[in-house]
Design a protein around this nucleic acid. Sequence first.
DNA 1: CGGTATGTTGACAGTGATCAAGAAAGGTGG
DNA 2: CCACCTTTCTTGATCACTGTCAACATACCG
Lengths: 241, 241
Amino acid sequence: MREIVRAPNAARQQRFGYKRVFGAGSVLPSSYIFENGQKGAERAVLSVRRGPIRYRRNSTIVCEGGTADYVFMVVDGVVRRCKAFQNGTRAIVAFHTPGELFGWTDELTHALSIEAATDALILYFKRNVLMSAASRDHKVANTLLRAATSELRCIQLHSLRINQSAKCRVAGFLLDLSARMAETANVDLLMSHQDVADHLGLSIETVSRTITELERACLIERASARTISLINRAALARLLD
Amino acid sequence: MREIVRAPNAARQQRFGYKRVFGAGSVLPSSYIFENGQKGAERAVLSVRRGPIRYRRNSTIVCEGGTADYVFMVVDGVVRRCKAFQNGTRAIVAFHTPGELFGWTDELTHALSIEAATDALILYFKRNVLMSAASRDHKVANTLLRAATSELRCIQLHSLRINQSAKCRVAGFLLDLSARMAETANVDLLMSHQDVADHLGLSIETVSRTITELERACLIERASARTISLINRAALARLLD
DNA sequence: CGGTATGTTGACAGTGATCAAGAAAGGTGG
DNA sequence: CCACCTTTCTTGATCACTGTCAACATACCG
């Protein structure tokens, strides 16, 4: 049987002592959003927005089981959707990066917690307004459909990945992150190794060891623990599949 | 390193020798569908249907990478969406049961193969017709949205499950299956243990052993290998989380 | 009835988790 | 700027769950 308490160190036990410091709401000019790649069909959706609200790293945006009154969009930072288990472990189903609409559901409550993985700026959309708008306006419905579809694709890839070896999982994660961040040179691991581990279904130790191993094999290079350059993307990609 | 060839027995090597026997198309009266719980909003969608077509067990409906010209609905039987890896392993992302609309994507190709896990009756919908219908008719868009949303929920639960122990995975799978089949007394494992194993990210041996273990613990009872009654659902549910 | 496909059980090995301890990074107050 | 503290990351030793290999049992089907 797996142990109940996984992190005996004092440092580790802090992990779930989320600070829950809800950042003071700091409303940006609405032009910010429209300049940020939103246009045309999204206008209708954006007309029901609230916020954006700023969250500090590790603060909870929605608790699992909380009423699903809102759907969200990341303006800045990284957000994680996760579930905490009774045995103290945690699983991160997905990370969300700027521009992504997430938290959509047709149920009354959110099945997962939504937390800020870094300091983050979040936009709110009232779900029932969105829903009734969708049933009248096909543009809104299509925006939601597009969001759900891309989230579906993303989580499908993820579910394929977590049956692979640790090396594949980490390599795939780095390649994905690099693609999402559209960084040319190096990948910035915006989230902690603990977050990466909980996302990939590994322990932090294994994540650390695997990164070290990839570095020794000259596939990546580290400037710091969270600043990684993918030296040999082709070789990394070859690890997958 | 994991071994390349996983199933050395002659019997096992047959696993991917899919028969690809496309069943002759046998068109049912359209009333069949309408009697089968489809109504109202779904009408518009159903007006663009083709089929249903009958597939034999293990035949391929769509190959991974195949053009995504159609979206599908299970009329009867069970369908699996899966990916075969180069090392001979296979991952089943999801099973689909009667009434489910699946295979929706906004990409040009299907990322996963779609195969009949049992003899199955499949309805086809032209994707581009569906897409253009969705951009005009919000009812169609909402039907797609609903399908995508419930698929999303399903795969989220699944991705949470595959980080758990083998016992949790099997117990959860049995409970889910029982709920989906709405069978009162016992669960009928319509798919092979191999399919279950590939879905849960376990080996067939582990699936078999785990089921035996659950039986010895008096949580379940077996009439045959594929006919299982959940004696103590509460205890099974307690294994989860 | 033989032959194939599928499921079961045992022995053993390997990947990754756990436990433990130390190193590096980041933040705060002097 | 430095000392101090907390958090995060790294590395090593050991253990266990689950995969692999092997053999057999059972079910299915012409």
